[in-house]
Design a protein around this nucleic acid. Structure first.
Lengths: 217, 217
DNA sequence: TAGATTGTTAATCGATTAACAATC
DNA sequence: TAGATTGTTAATCGATTAACAATC
């Protein structure tokens, strides 16, 4: 059971679907709804009912047979499972277009992530405040992360400086890196890297779209 | 072989990996390299060699036994498979933080996507130019898309107006929607929707990161 | 009770991994 | 030829789907 140095954590596609459920549940909660069945949630999300059931099961949430799930407690259980019931302080490296967009994207606060500082190699950006977050020089990563006990970081620098950014973050004690640069980062086993690729979705859209066109002919 | 009204298109995870390969291949090309083996590409990407081979096979690219793949033609084959060898004109609806970031994100141009207009319900935004793209009122979606023969659109409006935006796009003849709002859109079968969820990656990072911590203890 | 829904087990399907023959 | 690598087939694994018993 070596598993490449990492751990089984239940089903990954399921984990990725949970935030979507959460969004919908919060909306229903706001509308004053109290109970939802797996069937209705399946309809709202477009996923098959058994998938929704399995995903909920993974979080440990319990429903009432013949009734459904209590929305408030389902939300609480999903949030707890995702670790979104606490705020994770995070720093961001690379305040370009994408970086500043992420800083300004309000959605993350309700997803357990809060940016408390940003860093950039460009002296012209250093000292400015972007979306309420101060931009500091790269040399401040280590002291800042140590002082504020930061464990989570986002990399939004260009591909050719991503590894360098990762090295600085690792040296600063960061253990979770959300990497938006299209490179594989080399880090110690104790550091978790999540690579994010917007163009993956674009590729899927275009290829699936084309397959669809062919059918209609 | 009904398959829910849609079509088999080879392996979806594989399609999503191709843009990453492409990024790396372009970088190697820029460095003056001519040939690469599946093994080296596997090392660069962190994916297992057989996965890389299968993914390349899917694009129809051919290598030379005992030698490897010609980088130029591998790039060309992947681009052709993804539809990135041509520019797809696209429009964007919802010029908020995320929307304007996508407009400003230069990366899409090398990925076959070019924004030729943006649309917003907010009169204060209409008439302005964001990252070189003009912002027009929602009422102009239909005439604009018709005149410029646009088929691809990106939705970056808040969740509660996403369906309305989708309806406008469908009425305007759009057939491919890249949806960043956390809702399932109801559209005709002829329209392809790709939902994109940044918080899915965040969820994965936090859950995997936590599993990792437990192991070290 | 009757109807609805959860929770779980078994069957299927697709993607990944392993292995190796063919080829330059 | 010897070494390296592609291309493909078979085995494994994990996620999805189907089915249904248990329960309110």
């Amino acid at each position: 059971m070596v598993n490449k140095g990492s751990v089984r954590i239940g089903n990954l596609p399921g984990i990725r679907r949970l935030p979507f459920y959460l969004n919908i549940l919060r909306r229903l909660q706001g509308d004053g709804k109290n109970i939802i069945s797996a069937v209705s949630l399946a309809e709202e999300t477009g996923h098959p009912t058994p998938v929704v059931k399995k995903d909920i099961e993974m979080t440990g949430a319990a429903g009432k047979t013949g009734v459904g799930y209590d929305i408030d407690s389902l939300i609480a259980d999903i949030e707890a499972f995702l670790g979104w019931n606490q705020i994770h302080d995070a720093i961001l490296v690379g305040v370009g277009n994408l970086g500043s967009a992420l800083l300004g994207y309000g959605g993350f606060k309700s997803h357990g992530l809060q940016f408390i500082a940003a860093f950039d190699a460009d002296d012209d950006k250093v000292g400015k405040v972007t979306h309420g977050v101060e931009v500091l020089p790269l040399s401040k990563i280590k002291p800042f992360a140590a002082r504020r006990n930061v464990r989570t970081a986002v990399i939004t620098v260009p591909a050719d400086s991503a590894q360098q950014a990762a090295d600085l973050l690792v040296a600063a004690g960061i253990t979770r890196i959300w990497n938006f640069a299209p490179v594989m980062l080399t880090v110690p086993e104790t550091v978790m890297v999540q690579r994010e690729d917007l163009s993956a979705g674009l590729a899927e859209l275009l290829v699936r779209g084309r397959a669809n066109e062919n059918v209609e002919k």
